[in-house]
Design a protein around this nucleic acid. Sequence first.
DNA 1: GAAAATTTAAAGGTCTAATATTTTTTGTCA
DNA 2: TGACAAAAAATATTAGACCTTTAAATTTTC
Lengths: 244, 244
Amino acid sequence: MNRFKPVRQPRVSEEVIEQLKHAFLVGHFKAGDKLPPERELANEFQVSRVAVREALRALESSGFIEIRQGATGGAYVTDLTFETLAGAFLDLFLAEKISVPELCHVRRLLEPEIARMAAARVTSDYSERLLEALEAEEIPARTLAEDFETKTNVHFLLAEMCGNRLLEALSKSLMGLTRRFVAAVQPDFQSMHPPGLHRPIVEAVMAGDGDAAAEAMRLHAEEFGQILMAMEKEFRQRPFPVVV
Amino acid sequence: MNRFKPVRQPRVSEEVIEQLKHAFLVGHFKAGDKLPPERELANEFQVSRVAVREALRALESSGFIEIRQGATGGAYVTDLTFETLAGAFLDLFLAEKISVPELCHVRRLLEPEIARMAAARVTSDYSERLLEALEAEEIPARTLAEDFETKTNVHFLLAEMCGNRLLEALSKSLMGLTRRFVAAVQPDFQSMHPPGLHRPIVEAVMAGDGDAAAEAMRLHAEEFGQILMAMEKEFRQRPFPVVV
DNA sequence: GAAAATTTAAAGGTCTAATATTTTTTGTCA
DNA sequence: TGACAAAAAATATTAGACCTTTAAATTTTC
């Protein structure tokens, strides 16, 4: 079974990280609170300022705090978001530990369920926003990035509607990978994802028909996945591959 | 749409991080390679050692390198793993940004598909290991942690078999959350997950019957999810809640 | 008196340099 | 040859000085 792990005596900054993290998690600090200045923390923890700074940086990069410079600056506790999760996904994708087909497969799995759940929780407010997003897709975009963002909106709305924050975070993170890939490949974006592809999905969701929404999304995910994978194939054969 | 983002002039260490990360991603360093010592890097980057150290720490915590002390110590490039992803999930779970029902829902979604894919890729080697894992479940465990690990093995094997690294990583990460939750609740583990629950799944996978495997897993995930959610309900009503 | 410019103070950002600790290698002596 | 000690190479940590940014307080100017 598991071999032994090498014993690593913890670093000073790690102790500090642990203590601060614990304080956040048990609620000694709430979002928006300001931690004491570095010098004071160094005093309290009885370590050097460098050690405190290392800890604060680490906590910043895992999304627990935000560090601001200047007179009213300092370390402010933030509400943990799914940003770091998305960052971890991105690193893995860039390091080619996640491939486009693998990504597509998971999205085919998640997105229909998200659509189904969204249909069960649709409100008039969301309906309106879905329609707006749909209309926005019709306006020709000037850049690839803008086009991508517009086409993404329906997916993001559905993810928010679905009521499962984990699912929402996964969907958004994976969409981020997709965006990154598309940005690297620089396809002809007018033809990649013509407007209107999302209409059947939105209609089913607005009708509250979960099964239909899931099926419409399944078809869309299938189709778009094929496009992405074809893009990847073509991309690999380019004479001068673009570095991401 | 999007307003402007506030301009943040990057920190010195961030520049260093970027450059090093880029070097890893384009392959200037391979896993196992050793980076130059801190002092040399500081020289090359024309920054202080402190800045280099901050960068190295950050890269360590995102899983790109491993820092060892001592004579043959230094920063060694590692093969990026899914560890940091799991860490991000864990933080979110501990900060209550992911609930147990949400977790269960996603697992109900992923696990059956994993079982289906595993069935399509089964080999005699994996069959053997699945049976071994199944037998190991029969041996009564001494601790909750040991029990959990044993019962997890079938899931881990299936995740490895499924052939999609992203799915594998998600499954394993979410299993980590489940473990954490169970460890906090400290249920009566003999009755929580009696041995043999995985047998129908393993049998279907070994028979190469994807549909049956998915269905068996669906049933299991459903059932175990109910148990977890009941555990949570009971946990919330305890007079002296245990802090994780 | 109001607006503009300047000063000040608080906080993080960075650097240098010294010392401590850890770990491996090398050397020495019984 | 084996045990032990010293050396060497690296990171870990500290201390303290100085820089930069930012917002608020103050002064100046019109």
